[in-house]
């Protein structure tokens, strides 16, 4: 599968990233390489392989509360934290 420059630009927009044209060209090339590897994996013969329900189910947890982390610990890792215990973030576009 080939990723062209337009597709690379679309993905960049969705990821909120900006690239100039030469960079887009380079990204398109690299992504194409990655996807070619996936194509290669597709050639593996998996006929006869059975999914087993037991082996790949997500584990479940009982609904038993656990202690939260302290607010000091939360605040320590926050770039900005208000006195009343909120994270402070820059105002978003259109807010």
């Amino acid at each position: 599968m080939k990723i062209d420059r337009d597709e690379a630009r679309r993905i960049a927009t969705l990821a909120h990233l900006e690239f100039d044209d030469p960079a887009l060209e380079r990204m398109a090339g690299e992504m194409t390489k990655i996807l070619s590897y996936i194509d290669q994996l597709r050639e593996v013969d998996v006929a006869g392989f059975q999914w087993s329900a037991a082996a790949d189910s997500t584990p479940l947890r009982d609904d038993v509360p656990r202690a939260p982390v302290t607010r000091d610990a939360v605040a320590a890792n926050a770039p900005a934290f208000s006195d009343d215990g909120h994270f402070v973030v820059p105002k978003g576009i259109g807010d």
Binding site: D63, V64, P65, R66, H86
Partner: peptide, 23 residues
């Protein structure tokens, strides 16, 4: 429920901000 969907924190409404949180 008594805990959140993916962790053991309480989902109770009305607690002081950021006191029912974990990694």
């Amino acid at each position: 429920t008594s805990t959140k969907i993916f962790c053991g924190c309480s989902p109770a409404f009305g607690a002081p901000p950021n006191t029912h949180v974990c990694p």
